[in-house]
Design a protein around this nucleic acid. Structure first.
Lengths: 210, 210, 210, 210
DNA sequence: TATGAATGAGGATTCATTCAT
DNA sequence: AATGAATGAATCCTCATTCAT
């Protein structure tokens, strides 16, 4: 509390938009775009409606800014995947593990996914950017790794369209958690899930003798 | 057309609520619950706002009725899966194929999924019912089939948590089509998709020599 | 009062927009476009804000509709001037007399003039229409009559640009009454004013011997 | 330009309110009192809203100060008319010429007239002062000159109420330029206008033989 | 059953004004 | 003197809902 007193006017100003974006995230997640009241966002920050409009022209602009703001960590993930080394298998599993942490486990990205699904119609640009910056690069990455693994003999010959299927369990976990919100679905055990996921992914269902 | 002329007043009366539910589906899908105007639903039917309120007490009740109305075909699917015969593999793939048709290919179910994800917070009962009637039975079915296949030697020993992973590609396809709405993602080729999906599911990624 | 009871729903509906336009006139005159509150217009009619929006999409559209509505009598005046007969002098003086009644004496047209002057910037279309339908035809009419009078020997040879000068006392009276609003300027005596106006117009200031 | 560099802080301080009044004039003319935003005035000066409030307590006070500020040149005109010499005719025409220049040709006075017409209701004191300081003295001056001309035999016997009619073309030109704002009405030719105006004023419309 | 005029609470947005820096 | 963040009352407009016909 004493520390808070030290916040200068300048620091406060730099902080304000972040506070508003954080509050906007919570409210938009809770009520959707149309259902959210700007006043509730303001209340959450502890300011008045007018203050929100000092920083963001309209509710739409605020929504877009909020999406952009919270997309940053996801973008950083894509950078990390560049630095991986090891066999194609190792790198593929590493990437899938990171994706799981980022998409399925991280509440922010999970809820961002909800907003993308729910509000996409109203914000087509958002969808396009989401596709170009997230979906496309990830699919391309997985595609490339599979091809590399096939070339090196680690993987058997398979169609490139597999990529979506390969990552599917991650998005599915995300969506099921979004729908059942820790109420009907227990918080999944990461280790057990990844182990089962990777086991099935690598070996398939069939009995070896089959 | 001639047949339509014969619609009596009584039939017309019975038709009205269906027409309203159809229109409500389109509008709620397009704009979400909060963003939809009752008047737009009425316009779509060609009646006035008041008429909607003759049949449905409130916008919320209309939304719920609409969800229930369009959930029926999905419920029928569960019945069909009971009648399958053949090996565990055959029945599993049959079920996955049917699920794909029902969830990923059928626009109605797909959009219903969007609404469940988007509006779940506001309609917890809807979510609970959705879980009890759809998710739970399907997971149970897949679980049972896998156990059966393991028992019969068709499948290798695997954890039960696999079920979600096994059906994941179907929900993932659904969600991606919801997000990119036939704009960025080409309408997928069913045969190619299922073949790749089943191939990976049964055999995994690894080269046989591995 | 008893008569009012007889107003049917249909009659009421036909009446409502007129009532709103009347109320809008008073409020826009009193406060200008920006200064008028839609709620004050509604209050004047005895309905709620929402009702105004049942009939007029926006405050701007209401303003424009109001201007059009109250411009009708003025347009009718233009028709009347067509039916005049007599010498050029007689017809010119008749027209000027009618214009005086319509523009300077009639409160509605007078206040319409205030709005045209005050709000012209915001409603350029209104100004253009005002010019094409009122100013242009009147100037043309006076021009034609002067030329006719010159041809018949009633008037001396004068430039056509006189028309504005000829009608000037009417607009000036209007504007002065607008500015001083029956407070500082006594309600003018029509007979005396027209007599002086026409005397000066026909004979000029100079002593005859001059 | 070099001179401007020399502006001291003290001079700058003295300049600020003038700059604000100038900016206020443009904005109030453009949007009216209610439609003008204090921030737009500040932007025009290149300062922030707060600065405007350093010099003027409220938007209303600023409006009134602006009107007073721009009324000064008009007041000076009244002084000039005192120094005229020559026949009554000469002096009358000189005054009318000066009035034309000041009211009809000078944009500032013209737009001041717009504001008086548009905002008079809201600022009755302004109207009263305008009447006492401008209209009254001018009418009195013209009255006096006409009486003098009648006495000297230059003018024929006419009622005093003529004064308004005599100056009418000037106010009319002003108002028409306000309404049609150099768009529909060509910038008038001063010489031609005054010649026609004075010709009609002195001689009237009638053919001499009449 | 159907209408649609009317409501009125609610929500987005604006803007004059204040005040700590 | 100047700033500009913050306020909050005001105002436009929307829309779910009602109800007399």
């Amino acid at each position: 509390m004493a520390a808070q007193k030290k916040i200068t006017r300048a620091e406060q100003k730099a902080l304000r938009p972040i506070q508003i974006l954080d509050a906007a995230f919570e409210e938009f997640v809770r009520c959707g775009f149309a259902g959210t009241r700007v006043e509730d966002i303001a209340d959450r920050v502890g300011v008045t409606k007018g203050t929100v409009y000092v920083y963001f022209e309209t509710k739409e602009k605020l929504f877009e800014a909020m999406i952009n703001h919270f997309s940053v960590p996801f973008q950083e993930l894509l950078g990390i995947t560049e630095g991986l080394s090891g066999s194609a298998i190792d790198r593929l599993l590493s990437i899938l593990g990171l994706l799981y942490e980022q998409i399925a486990e991280d509440r922010t990205t999970r809820e961002l996914t909800r907003l993308v699904i729910a509000e996409g119609h109203r914000f087509p640009d958002l969808i396009d950017r989401h596709h170009d910056q997230f979906i496309e690069p990830i699919i391309a990455k997985v595609d490339a790794l599979i091809l590399e693994g096939v070339a090196s003999g680690e993987f058997r010959e398979i169609p490139v369209e597999f990529s979506e299927i390969v990552v599917a369990p991650i998005l599915t976990t995300t969506v099921l958690r979004l729908i059942f919100d820790d109420r009907r679905v227990p918080t999944p055990n990461k280790e057990a899930f990844l182990q089962a996921y990777f086991d099935l992914l690598l070996n398939g269902l069939l009995a070896k003798s089959h």
